[in-house]
Structure formats: C-alpha cells, structure tokens
Amino acid sequence: MCGNLHNRGPAAQYVKPRSARGFGAEGARDRERAPGRHGRQDQQERSGLRIVVKPDPSEPRRVVDEVERFCVEHALSQNIIFRFQLSLDELLTNIISYGFEGATEDPVITVDIRLGDADIEITIRDNGQPFNPLEDAEIPDLSLAAEDRPIGGLGIHLTKSFIDTLAYERVEGFNCLTLTQPLGAAGSEESPDEH
C-alpha cells in the first residue's frame, strides 16, 4: 500500500503508462481495459494515477476534479464519485489546514488512485504530524441540538460513513490512509449512518 514512497514524481504523473490520459490525441480511453483483463502482470491493478498535492487551500478542489475525471474516464458510477469527492475534500482539507502545524520538513502530499477489477483504492500520503483519523479524531455527538453542537469534527465522521474500507499506517514518516470502495454493489446513499 505504502511501499513506493520514494517513487514520487511530478504533479499528476501516471503510475502506469497504459492508464487513460484523456487529453492526448491517442485515444487513451480504449487502452486500459484489455491489458487489464488479459495477460496482465499484476493481479489487481488495471489503471492508476498519482496526483501531487501542494499545501494550499485551493488544492482539495483540484484533486477532487482530477479524481472525478479519472472516474468518469473509467465509467465508474456517480455514487462512487460522490463518495470520493466528499472524503477527499474532508481529508485533504484537514491535512492542509492542520497537518503541518509546527512541521519542519517541507510538506509532501500525494494521492494515488488504483483501479482494480473489483474495487478502487485511493491512498493519501502526507509527511505531516502523525494523525490516525480512525483513532485520533473526536467522535461527534450527533444527538446534540443545533445550539449545543460544536462547530467542527464532522469531516472524519462523514468519511467513515461513506467509504466502505479505511486503513491507516504510519510508514517512514508518512501518514498513509487508504480508502477502498467496491466497484459493483456500493452501499446505499440513503443509509450511510449505521457506522
């Protein structure tokens, strides 16, 4: 998951050459599926994308747009797109706003998309303060009336509500959070609050 930390490239570098670029004149859309299904080297991945993120408040929106474009190019459902839009906006906004308070190293943030045959995985890495959103985030009290509610703490809750599988590791100074969503039967949008 978090193994290729030293393989960082420039912004929006494609991890696999066969992945769809969508901009060029090469008809990239047609290329990724066939090699993914037949004669593939790896078991899972049929396409991928790496996005390098600057520590700037305008970046979550750009990343969300890039991820949406990737998903549309690969004919993924609006349901999946919505879940990743929401969670990436929440997680990246958190990292950019708070992750580097008091940090001495230059911020490095990357978002990697890996599209497999059965699911899509997005890994967010950052070298900010250690923060495991699955354990360190406060759990909001959703029963409070409006006037008693604190102004905050909902982003991680939303991410947990709308993403099926979340996994966190701290590896070589990087927070690595992987979000996984099945491609087929995504859960119902209308019943996200059982978590």
Binding site: L86, L158, E189
Partner: peptide, 17 residues
C-alpha cells in the same frame, strides 16, 4: 438532492435543521 440529503442525514443535521 439525494447526495446532499444523505450528508445531512449522516451527520444528524436533518434533526437540527
């Protein structure tokens, strides 16, 4: 919309707004 409603519901905002 359906997605915005789901977000309101998931956070309990449908009960306070």
């Amino acid at each position: 919309s359906g997605t915005v409603r789901a977000i309101f519901k998931s956070t309990g905002f449908d009960r306070v707004i």
